[in-house]
């Protein structure tokens, strides 16, 4: 059984005069031990899906339907009390903007100890210190950082602390939402290497949300490509990145530089995301697709399996 099974997930943001469909009929399966990358440009619904899994979408301004089965429980129907039991012990996360992921006016130790005490009430100072020390060791940070404030640390160090925090209770699934986006390339690469080591050592399942194909290529076994709230292609990273089936995945890959082959100008994808507050009857990418046919504008493409585990949603098939 899959660790996380998302079935026909729809998420709408409710605004005064309109509704925006941020996730449209998303279905995705994550097996235990998987490292799956969710890619797509800004506004494609990646973070909305992650926040929905974490139960952190504001209830009053969003409407969610479908199913998110995690360890047999449907997270869409789960109450706040239900989430309180799952959070951090089974399901944890690292968020983007490393410099803001810790409170600037509290010491690192207070923030780590407070989170620890939420799940182990009454834990004394020594137990908290032992826990924090072990976690910091895992991410190659000295114990002295415990007595520092976030502004005394670099972005990379803060992100390492965030990773240490999410490993606190050996969760079954870690969601990394643009966890390395704000870091410089050298620190990003160090952190990704350490993360891969930790993942391999503990067998934790990772869902890595990013817009950087290089991160997915280096750290994820599987990839899911999202565009305008819909999942357009999913499969093994090695296959999808070398032989992309969906025109959007092809465009996305063509936008990234490569050291191999002939030197050529980078190709962007012309146009921008469609307005998600209106009904889009056909393929969401049709308006930017260089191969779009009439059917693409009128009928919603269904996910078709090309090989076991490799699917894409395009009427035109492989190109």
């Amino acid at each position: 059984m899959a660790l996380l099974e998302i079935k026909n997930l729809d998420v709408r943001y409710i605004m005064k005069e309109r509704q925006v469909l941020a996730c449209d009929d998303v279905s995705l399966s994550v097996e235990e031990g998987d490292s799956i990358g969710i890619v797509g440009e800004s506004g494609s619904g990646k973070s909305t899906m992650a926040m929905c899994v974490l139960g952190l979408l504001p209830k009053d301004t969003t409407r969610t339907s479908g199913e998110i089965l995690f360890q047999g429980e449907d997270l869409v129907k789960l109450t706040e009390q239900g989430f309180a039991k799952l959070r951090w012990k089974s399901l944890s996360a690292v968020f983007q903007k490393s410099m803001n992921s810790l409170s600037p006016v509290h010491k690192v130790c207070k923030q780590m100890f407070d989170i620890y005490r939420v799940h182990t009430p009454g834990a004394d100072e020594n137990a908290c210190k032992a826990m924090a020390g072990a976690l910091l060791d895992k991410v190659n940070l000295p114990q002295s950082v415990l007595n520092l404030y976030p502004h005394q640390l670099s972005g990379g160090m803060i992100q390492r602390i965030s990773i240490a925090l999410c490993l606190m209770f050996d969760p079954a699934l870690i969601i990394l939402d643009e966890a390395t986006t704000a870091l410089d390339v050298v620190t990003e690469s160090q952190i990704l290497r350490e993360l891969t080591k930790l993942r391999e050592a503990s067998g934790i399942t990772c869902m890595m949300i990013t817009h950087n194909m290089a991160v997915v290529a280096g750290s994820c076994d599987k990839v899911a490509v999202m565009y305008a709230g819909r999942l357009v292609e999913t499969g093994m990273t090695a296959r999808v990145l070398t032989e992309p089936r969906h025109p959007y995945t092809q465009g996305l890959l063509a936008s990234f530089p490569t050291f191999e082959g002939k030197k050529q100008a980078l190709k962007g994808i012309p146009g921008s995301l469609p307005d998600l507050s209106g009904e889009i009857p056909g393929c969401v990418f049709a308006y930017r697709c260089p191969h779009a046919a009439e059917r693409c504008f009128n009928e919603k493409p269904v996910m078709t399996e090309h090989e076991p585990g490799w699917k894409s949603a395009c009427w035109l098939g492989p190109r």
Binding site: L54, L56, A84, R87, K89, Q96, N100, D114, I115, V118
Partner: peptide, 14 residues
């Protein structure tokens, strides 16, 4: 709306 609030909420803090 700061990121640390999201982190603490995700960590299960009431």
């Amino acid at each position: 709306n700061e990121d640390y609030v999201t982190l603490f909420r995700a960590a299960g803090m009431p």
